[in-house]
């Protein structure tokens, strides 16, 4: 319970710290010249609102007990296998994007490989999953090529 208490308060604290940081990041903007507000005032109002609301929320939760927060966490059902799967998929996606951005490998090839690989992985690496994954990869890549390359004549990454 104590741990949940602390964890529950962590994100709001992070938010408040971030807001303070942004407040100072806005510091050097020039004073307004043609209109009374200037470029820094509205962002500062918004930052103030975020800090205020976060504090209010912490207060309310302090008053009302942490049952709500604990309930949210419990509902998620953190089973390690699925979390690992998600992380691997996500890293796969990021890897695909990194390759797209920083290498010259053809977009269509990368997209096909990405879709096929992840479909197959998410399908628990079964044989049927492999065939379906390849078909879907081919199909989707072809569709993208058709819509964007042929019909709309645009460019790929």
């Amino acid at each position: 319970m104590r741990k949940d208490c602390v964890l529950g308060f962590l994100p709001p604290l992070i938010i408040i710290v971030a807001c303070v940081f942004f407040w100072f990041a806005l510091g050097e903007l020039p004073l307004p010249r043609f209109e009374p507000m200037g470029p820094a005032l509205f962002p500062k109002i918004v930052l103030g609102a975020i800090i205020g609301l976060t504090l209010l929320d912490m207060l309310c939760r302090g008053l009302g007990g942490n049952t709500a927060a604990a309930g949210e966490k419990a509902r998620e059902g953190n089973d390690p296998a699925s979390t690992r799967r998600t992380l691997i998929c996500l890293s796969g996606f990021l890897f695909y994007l990194l390759l797209l951005d920083f290498t010259d490998i053809s977009y269509l090839l990368l997209t096909f490989l990405f879709i096929a690989a992840e479909c197959w992985y998410l399908g628990h690496c079964g044989r049927r999953a492999l065939v379906l994954a390849l078909i879907v990869g081919l199909g989707i890549t072809a569709l993208i090529y058709f819509i964007f390359g042929v019909v709309l004549q645009s460019f790929f990454p």
Partner: peptide, 15 residues
């Protein structure tokens, strides 16, 4: 077919 596909699209690089 997959290999063929890869080759074809691999060659059709950016303009």
């Amino acid at each position: 077919l997959t290999l063929l596909f890869c080759m074809v699209f691999g060659l059709a690089g950016p303009a």
